Simulated assay, not measured.
Amino acid sequence: MHQHAAQTLDEAFERLHRTGSEFDDGLSNHGPMAVESLVHAGQWEAVPAWLDLYTPRLDPAVRPTERIARDAWRDALGDRARDGDWIALFTDEIAEQSWRDVLALWWPRLLPGMPGGATHGVIRVGHAVRALLEAGESPIRLAEFAHAMAYFASSNQPLPELPRLAGGRSPFEALDAVPPLPIGEKDHISRRLTFLAEWDEWLTPTLSVGPVGTPEEAEALLTDTVHAAIRLYLRRGHGSGVMNVHGVTAPSAVLRVLPALPRELWIPSFTAAWATSSAVFAVYMGREDAGEAPAPASDASNAMERALAHGDEHAIKLADTAADVYARSGDTRALSAAALSLELIAPFKG
């Protein structure tokens, strides 16, 4: 990463660490995720101006209240009021051991609760890990990793426990078979997700992927999940232009974390990411396919330029994942999905 880009990223993270992980009664602070996306895409010079528009809406950081005992961490899991305590815990953790060791220890503890906070915890971790892998370690990037892991912990909310994946479908086939939530059952995401536990119409296609035998298979299936999800956003994202973004960016975040994880964690990582993506689309996607898809950007760089001009943090993050999918597959539908998000999501001008 260019030295000036890395410096800009650190300055942005430092500025954002004075703000809370959430604001306005439960909305997630997307600042760290969006600025990392912009820097990764080469748009680092635009970061300060974007933050000038974005940060005035944010709340101050939550102060620590009580130390979380390392043998009693479960008591604080999913408690958003203790975000400051979780930041203190992870700051201590990375002061004592490498961030990779911290990730290896805590990832399987937090993974089942990926849907919590509308998946923003795991998404923030994905961006923090990519920053460390691409730009290397710095005190501020390590601090962002601590903040991201803390949000993953404080917002944790597990899906209902699922039986083992035991089908033979690809993620493309299985995700296409996932049905939208019945009319009349829609509510806050945490309540929508609880409905899925006993809903066979969702369980059957969700369990129809797999089984997964090797870490390599898990990585390939996770890659396909991200690709399938962005294609589904193009068809059904209109059910909620904002919320369905997370059905794409959550598995994308997990894919970005894989290279930093021990290989024995790759299979459970795929399983959790797949179920989460399926769940998000089930409770938010449109009931019918959309009409004609918008024309894609000319390339991934142009897709991010359009998202930056639009300004919304969700559009920026979707363009970031669209660029990844397009680079891997050459599928221009990924860029069309990014273009669609600009139509479905209101522009942000501060």
Rank of each mutant, 00 (worst) to 15 (best):
A153W: 02
L162C: 04
L105H: 10
D200S: 12
R169Y: 02
G136F: 11
T206A: 15
D187I: 03
A166P: 01
A128K: 08
S155D: 13
G126S: 11
L111H: 02
G237Y: 09
Y233C: 09
R169S: 14
R235M: 08
V102S: 10
E93T: 10
L111Y: 02
L165T: 03
D101T: 08
K186L: 12
R130W: 09
L221F: 05
Y151E: 12
L175P: 09
S190M: 10
A148N: 09
T214N: 10
L110I: 01
H227P: 02
G213A: 06
A153N: 05
D187S: 15
G168L: 01
L193P: 02
A118N: 13
A229D: 03
A150T: 05
E173N: 08
V102Y: 00
R191N: 15
W202L: 08
G184F: 12
V102K: 00
W107A: 01
L103F: 08
V209P: 02
P182R: 06
H127T: 13
P171A: 05
L221S: 01
W199N: 12
T204E: 15
G184W: 10
E173P: 04
R235I: 07
R191W: 11
A153C: 03
P108S: 12
R191L: 13
P139E: 02
E134R: 08
G113D: 06
A220E: 01
A166D: 12
P205G: 06
H188P: 01
A166L: 02
H120Q: 14
H227G: 07
I123G: 04
W107S: 00
P158M: 06
E217N: 01
A146V: 03
D176R: 10
R164N: 06
E185M: 14
R100H: 06
V212C: 12
L222D: 00
E144G: 14
E198Y: 07
I230L: 03
G213C: 02
P163Y: 01
A146H: 04
T204K: 09
R236G: 05
P108E: 06
L162R: 15
V122T: 10
L234K: 07
A95T: 13
F145R: 10
W106M: 01
L162V: 08
